[in-house]
């Protein structure tokens, strides 16, 4: 089975729902004699015959050179990828961040989450991989790490881990504003990280090793073209007064709503969270210009709590979904 010795797990992690589902479906298909593609993971939409879930070992591998522990709002993540063999092709690498309620309910404000690559021996983190608003009340964030893991895999020395950091939303002045009431350990333990990876061994799946890139949907958040004209998120804070809503909305008075704007050129479609229809429409536009290109629209939105009067004079506190644009894409 490709294992060097019989495994003896130190900590038994719960099997995530998605893995259990894949397994159960395949088992069912095998039992009923149904044809199944063992070299394609349809749940993720990628070719591959090996699915692994790496657990974060940041606590064990925290660099010894660092004198002091990182601030409470930071968590160091490390994934030991040494089991990946030379002949495996990396098809998908997704960081799953599960945020326990404790992690931020104690902070009592809306937060931004930053994931960055650790570059130096002292845990300096420079390259930002993700900036996202936290979902309420808790949830799992998925971050595409394929390009990063490919680099780690070709040069294991470059794998110095990742840093997760929470900041107050809006982010200008954050020093001293975060004072978790819990102690740091509790706080950090409420962030659980794992790395879901799909690889492909060409020996076992020969015909998939050159999978035609039928516009693989990439939720790439990694280095995006930064040209002003391309589809991207624009920051915007509005007050409810501007909407004429000040009479019935009690709080907040203003909020960061953001909006999407920009061009969706064919050459960069794969970077813009675009869907198959948007991709096809943009290709058709390059042949017949009267067909318009895809448009720049929100692809990820987050909720916001609001306090307001309803039409009957009752006071409502409600978490309204899709209030704040987190990411834009071409759709």
């Amino acid at each position: 089975m490709g294992l060097k010795k019989v495994p003896s797990p130190r900590i038994v992690q719960p099997v995530p729902f998605i893995l259990r589902k894949i397994f159960q479906e395949r088992q069912k298909a095998a039992a009923t004699g149904q044809y199944q593609k063992l070299c394609y993971v349809k749940e993720f939409g990628v070719p591959g015959n090996l699915i692994r879930l790496f657990q974060d070992q940041g606590d064990l591998f925290y660099p010894k050179e660092v004198d002091q522990a990182p601030p409470c709002t930071q968590k160091f993540l490390f994934f030991n990828l040494s089991v990946i063999t030379q002949d495996e092709q990396l098809m998908m690498a997704q960081l799953h961040l599960k945020l326990g309620l404790n992690a931020y309910s104690a902070l009592k404000q809306d937060l931004e989450l930053i994931v960055s690559l650790v570059r130096g021996p002292n845990c300096q983190s420079d390259q930002k991989l993700l900036l996202s608003y936290l979902p309420w009340p808790q949830g799992v964030l998925h971050v595409d790490l394929l390009d990063v893991v490919k680099k780690w895999n070709s040069n294991p020395q470059s794998n110095l881990g990742l840093m997760v950091e929470l900041l107050p939303k809006g982010g200008s002045d954050f020093t001293g504003t975060i004072r978790p009431q819990d102690n740091c350990d509790n706080w950090r333990q409420s962030i659980q990280a794992s790395l879901m990876m799909v690889t492909l061994t060409p020996k076992e799946c020969p015909r998939f090793s050159h999978f035609p890139q039928f516009h693989r949907k990439r939720r790439a958040i990694l280095p995006k073209p930064t040209s002003e004209n391309f589809c991207r998120r624009h920051q915007l804070v509005i007050s409810f007064k501007e909407l004429g809503w000040q009479q019935w909305i009690i709080a907040p008075k203003e909020f960061r709503t953001n909006y999407c704007k920009g061009d969706c050129p064919l050459s960069l479609m794969s970077l813009f969270n675009s869907s198959n229809y948007a991709f096809l429409q943009t290709i058709m536009n390059s042949r017949t210009p009267e067909i318009p290109k895809a448009t720049c629209i929100p692809t990820k939105l987050s909720p916001m709590s609001m306090l307001y009067y309803d039409g009957d004079g009752n006071i409502i506190l409600r978490h309204h979904k899709s209030m704040v644009v987190d990411e834009c894409g071409c759709g």
Partner: peptide, 26 residues
């Protein structure tokens, strides 16, 4: 519309220069 799209359309109505119109999309 999503809540956001509705708010953007309202903002566009009151302050046409602040945001673009929402987009017609699948």
């Amino acid at each position: 519309p999503t809540n956001h799209a509705y708010i953007q359309s309202l903002l566009k109505f009151y302050q046409p220069h602040q945001v673009p119109s929402t987009c017609c999309a699948p």
